[in-house]
Design a protein around this nucleic acid. Sequence first.
DNA 1: TTGTAAGCGTTATCAC
DNA 2: GTGATAACGCTTACAA
Lengths: 322, 322
Amino acid sequence: MSKFDEIMKRSGYSKATVSRVINHSPYVSDEARQIITDIMKQLNYIPNRNAVSLSTGQTKQIGIVTSTTGEIILTFMNQFIDTAMDFGFQTIIYTSRGDPEIELQAFEDLRSKRVDGLVIIACVNDPRKLKAYMEYGPIVSWQRMGNDEIPSVAMDQAEGYKLALEHLFSRGYTRIANAFGRAESLNTQSRREAFESFMKSRRLHVWTEAYQYSVFSSSDGEEAMRRMAEGPELPQAVLCSNDYAAIGILSEARRRNIQVPEQLAIVGFDDIELSRVLGITTIHNPIAEQSTQAFHQLWAVLGKTELKTEQLTYQLIERDTT
Amino acid sequence: MSKFDEIMKRSGYSKATVSRVINHSPYVSDEARQIITDIMKQLNYIPNRNAVSLSTGQTKQIGIVTSTTGEIILTFMNQFIDTAMDFGFQTIIYTSRGDPEIELQAFEDLRSKRVDGLVIIACVNDPRKLKAYMEYGPIVSWQRMGNDEIPSVAMDQAEGYKLALEHLFSRGYTRIANAFGRAESLNTQSRREAFESFMKSRRLHVWTEAYQYSVFSSSDGEEAMRRMAEGPELPQAVLCSNDYAAIGILSEARRRNIQVPEQLAIVGFDDIELSRVLGITTIHNPIAEQSTQAFHQLWAVLGKTELKTEQLTYQLIERDTT
DNA sequence: TTGTAAGCGTTATCAC
DNA sequence: GTGATAACGCTTACAA
């Protein structure tokens, strides 16, 4: 006999009343509540979550889909886990390592009611395929996905990029190189456009020969610095796809005795912990806030509440590399 | 009507037979299997995991309890997630951030049958309190906990330390400093003993004045290096509690123009990615393997199978800092 | 090889 | 306020 039944028996009350006490329903006499609560304590009772989930159709679990983990993603995840917990939700992590099959597991779990909703940090399956799962529960993505088939909390990185450009310009740097990420990504496109329109509006030379692509990690950054140093002309400043790239560029520049920022200014992106330690000027990316928004967006449909979003903004963090 | 019922109806078979097909029971005629499988496909059927869990008493979910996340812990977690997945288990992460209440949630989840088992990476509650939860499901810890109240897959770090010592000794370094972690931790104790007995056996001076404690992060390492440099006598070599500490010591040494390894040799611990990039000699810690062992230990009781453990060993990784 | 029926532990909808 | 009773969707003896 389950503990639930035991409570019924001992208290003399029915299933329904016991359930009401468990769920803090107001329609219970103080006496009944007292008696039942006591017995529950006595029995060290805790409800079986599977039974509750089966009955209510809610698991109070949300999945996070990602292919890899690193500091930036961790920032997003940790914040999400915290926010979710405040609302009584647990977070379960699906790391696909780039395998579409494994990734799909997360979506099948939404279908099989193992999770109530899903957050996509990075995914490898075709967005159109994933879109089909939206009928089984709310899904929200961090980054913009394809043609907005799936809602996202993405910000336009061009805004951040402009901040960096204005800063460099005000400091007198005009010969500016760019270390971009994936050439075809929406973010890169957006940044490139921002750069070009800014430079043109100031009647400055758009130095497309100094565009570098696929600069993600610090070793990519080192590599990028090498190419710049061995090129015909050193730029006065570099804008980086992220802080890791900036770290690589900075350390390789030091190795080559290039003075930063006198000979070369460096601006990172994201504002990770390490860039604070190393004194790298960067653009603060409100990742934690985006994460919170992601949860709120799910919660709006799960809890049938209003969604209130506030506009988030990037911020320039001036440090020693400019 | 649920899809399950729909399948019953359409196929004309009973609940039991449908269930048998779902679970690949051999006691089904080919015909029945065929018909039912077809209808399942047609209906795009997937079992409700809550119902399955309620019925079987198994969730196929395992929780990982940790207070923080970082590269080392991530290594352990990622490997665990992979291994678990191979056995059809999902992993759910509980990050307590040092809050005992939040941490306890994970254990309550074991009790409420949300997870089948638990792995402890780092915890803040009293081991004796946690031990009480072992009656609800298997629990295994990465590090040794208290008086072995909870089983662990820990290794004796002294073994790794000896490797480092022998290496330094063979290279002729005898004036050796130690940058330990938490002064009272079992690991530190174990390392200190290993150090002292090694030195004594070689009739070398045990330089206790050069013991430094609470050196965890790279900035702790920088701090430690500062103290060493400002001390009366520079050691010939430093043994570090982990690679981060080694990184800090290395970078601060460079800043002070102390030649590594000519004036100062450095040995890290764990063998993280960054120490490979930076060329730091270190002791390889088989973290992924310990993680796998942790799962196997849980699986032994969940799957009622034999537990086969192989002895893991540390390994010296010689690089540029010695 | 198949079916019947009794769980699994809750919640939810009625009446009273 | 309280209590029957029917879901929730699936597994598993036990029979046949």
